[in-house]
């Protein structure tokens, strides 16, 4: 039995990410976000479709997260919990998580302000910035649950964003390409993790 408490706590938190189902759904959501950016890029500005495309982004993000959350729980309930057990996690409401949320919020606000000040040059660097932000989030997550593939995904995210910006593909087409590419990468990574999970575990009926 493992007596290393810290590692055990980390392993318990890692359990949610081990099967890759969350990554697959996050990947699909990023592809959808990419499509909304692409729509903004092809629709002529000022047309009624432009307003619809602008509205599509928040609808996809909020609706996608809402539906995705339920779908992930449903799939885990059917495929994962009968194999390796059910866990319900606490909502993060500790002082440190509030502090972290505050820091991230302040950082994001500063970045948005910077984008407005440096407009229109900032549009060119938006894919790089998006890649960096997603990368930072993935590193934080990788460090929290000790999953090496998240560090690799962070590096890929930063690289995709940087390549798009360096090639002069700014917003919205650069953002569309970034989210679509990163979505495919995340879904592929999640698919691989799910395949490994099924290889390494057996249904409860075969465990007796």
């Amino acid at each position: 039995m493992s007596t290393d408490i810290d590692k055990m706590v980390q392993r318990v938190n890692r359990y949610w990410y081990e099967d890759g189902i969350g990554e697959i759904f996050a990947g699909f959501l990023l592809v959808l976000i990419g499509l909304t950016f692409w729509l903004q890029g092809i629709v002529p500005s000022g047309s009624p479709l432009a307003a619809v495309s602008a509205l599509a982004f928040p609808v996809v993000v909020i609706g996608g997260m809402w539906i995705g959350n339920r779908l992930v729980k449903g799939v885990k309930n059917r495929l994962i919990y009968p194999r390796t057990g059910y866990v319900s996690y606490q909502r993060p409401n500790s002082g440190s998580s509030r502090w972290l949320t505050g820091v991230i919020g302040a950082f994001m606000a500063a970045l948005v302000a910077l984008l407005f000040v440096t407009y229109p040059i900032s549009l060119l660097w938006l894919p790089a910035l998006q890649g960096l932000l997603v990368g930072i989030f993935l590193i934080y997550l990788g460090n929290k649950v000790n999953l090496i593939r998240f560090y690799l995904l962070a590096a890929i995210s930063t690289l995709i964003g940087a390549i798009l910006s360096l090639h002069g593909v700014g917003d919205p087409m650069g953002s569309a390409a970034y989210f679509a590419c990163m979505g495919i990468v995340l879904a592929t990574s999640g698919g691989g993790a799910l395949y490994r999970y099924f290889q390494q575990t057996r249904p409860l009926s075969e465990q007796e």
Binding site: M1, M8, R11, Y81, T84, Y86
Partner: peptide, 28 residues
């Protein structure tokens, strides 16, 4: 007692867990 400490530590980290998960994590 080490086994109970591990069980309680797991349950302290999460909201709830089922018997199968606890069995896998503790190795009991």
């Amino acid at each position: 007692e080490p086994s109970r400490l591990v069980i309680v530590t797991i349950l302290y980290t999460v909201e709830s867990a089922d018997f199968l998960f606890l069995q896998r994590e503790t190795g009991l």
